[in-house]
Design a protein around this nucleic acid. Structure first.
Ligand SMILES: [Zn+2]
Ligand SMILES: [Zn+2]
Ligand SMILES: [Zn+2]
Ligand SMILES: [Zn+2]
Lengths: 153, 153
DNA sequence: GTTTATATTGATAATACATATCAATTTCAC
DNA sequence: GTGAAATTGATATGTATTATCAATATAAAC
């Protein structure tokens, strides 16, 4: 089994456990949205609208609100992250590796999103929180600017 | 003259220059909003609604949209920063010192906003951008968690 | 000071994204 | 299968922001 397929299976397991722990129900719609999200949007940052339009083509009976609600469930269960890059639209990305933690560079010209991780920054933030007696729960770090393609033009 | 008063005068000058450079007009409303914003909200992070409610008490003739538009002008002219801390409401803060650059810690319990600055983080971000051939225009860094008062409870 | 062109204003409508409502339907423990 | 409870999809509502526009204020030209 490929690592990606393995990962997808792990997320499915996590989600199923979440569903049963919370006494929720598994439905056809949730299955479809899971498959679409973890099948086609690995490493991407999709808006609810985009995912809905995508799914609607093959599953026109699936409603808008259901996609919203399901992505929220994905987030709650810890298999997806919600991101917000200042354009007013929430974006979701599948969590690939629980230990993986990354931030984003967003090109203000073409809108492309790049990812990066940096241990030094992370430890700095922990230190800063500690210094201020602040219990760090999470943090948000984004770089906005021009990507290598766009800065040349 | 106190440093704060001096700073306020500097911002006023910058704004006036912006107004005349862009061939805009100075109005009674803009004066009132400037006075209120730079008089009572130094070091704070005020929402449009809050500022509007505050101003309305003494200047009921000033409209909602005007406050929105004026804060946007403050931002464009470089005398105010717009911030967004994930509650869906834009916040504005007077820029105290052009060289000053800071980020925020937001308490998820009481909503209090703390400021911090850190040179090491800044140089890390510059390096990261450079490494990815990314032309850094600006960046956003926030720490969410519990402040010292709230973590104790 | 008067005229005139243009920017501004405030009330309100419109937009955009997200959430709430609710009757009909589906799921699942029994 | 039965019934309680969750889910669904269509739609309404909420919330923050922006657009519209006629009336007004400003400032430059005269
Ligand atoms: Zn680009
Ligand atoms: Zn990402
Ligand atoms: Zn607190
Ligand atoms: Zn600040």
């Amino acid at each position: 089994m490929t690592p990606v397929a393995q990962m997808k299976m792990d997320r499915r397991k996590t989600f199923n456990e979440f569903i049963s722990r919370k006494r929720l129900k598994s439905t056809k719609q949730r299955d479809v949205i899971f498959e679409e999200f973890f099948g086609n949007y690995m490493g991407r940052h999709v808006t609810v609208e985009e995912l809905y339009e995508d799914i609607k083509r093959r599953y026109p009976y699936i409603g808008f609100a259901t996609v919203y609600r399901t992505l929220k469930l994905f987030r709650e269960s810890g298999i997806a992250s919600e991101r917000n890059f200042g354009d007013g639209k929430a974006r979701y990305e599948p969590i690939r590796d629980e230990r993986e933690h990354h931030h984003h560079m967003i090109c203000t010209e073409c809108g492309k999103i790049y990812e990066f991780a940096n241990n030094q920054v992370e430890s700095c933030l922990n230190q800063i929180a500690k210094l201020n007696e602040f219990k760090l729960e999470n943090h948000k770090l984004e770089i906005y600017g021009l990507c290598s393609s766009c800065r040349g033009s």
